[in-house]
């Protein structure tokens, strides 16, 4: 059985991969849709800064030695799939850079209280 992964050199986007420690979740367990996650800034020296809720994260922008391709499965409704080719993927994007936040988040509220 062969499952093809098609690549269109022009139709592919560059995405970024943002790596966070732990998981991102809503505080009230609501489904995550149409919600703000956080504000992403770059400091003048290039340091990525992400503010999520009352947490500040300082990150690092690094090229990935092994980039990540994003493959999207072709839905069967498009009709060109059959028993021999039960599925097909298209490369829709490649992430070549990642921004990694690996330090523990700082809590804003601490500053706030001490002020």
């Amino acid at each position: 059985m062969l499952v093809r992964v098609k690549s269109n050199p022009d139709g592919k986007e560059d995405w970024v991969l943002i790596e966070l420690q732990g998981d991102v979740d809503t505080s009230n367990g609501e489904h995550m849709k149409s919600q703000n996650i956080g504000d992403f800034h770059f400091a003048k020296d290039g340091t990525p800064i992400l503010i999520i809720g009352y947490h500040i994260l300082y990150g690092k922008d690094t090229p990935m030695s092994k980039p990540i391709a994003v493959l999207k499965k072709k839905s069967n409704s498009e009709g060109c799939l059959n028993e021999e080719h039960p599925a097909e993927y298209t490369v829709i994007a490649i992430a070549k850079r990642k921004i990694i936040f690996k330090t523990r988040p700082k809590r804003i509220v601490n500053h706030f209280i001490t002020q």
Binding site: Q35, F40, H41, F42, A43, K44, I68, V70, K72, K73
Partner: peptide
């Protein structure tokens, strides 16, 4: 101290519909 453009990361109703997405490491 910050660059002028701030990017707000947000989920859309389409986010996390991941069943048809696979990530593949590339050499």
């Amino acid at each position: 101290d910050l660059n002028g453009i701030t990017q707000i990361l947000q989920f859309t109703p389409n986010s996390n519909k991941n069943s048809d997405i696979k990530l593949l490491e590339l050499d």
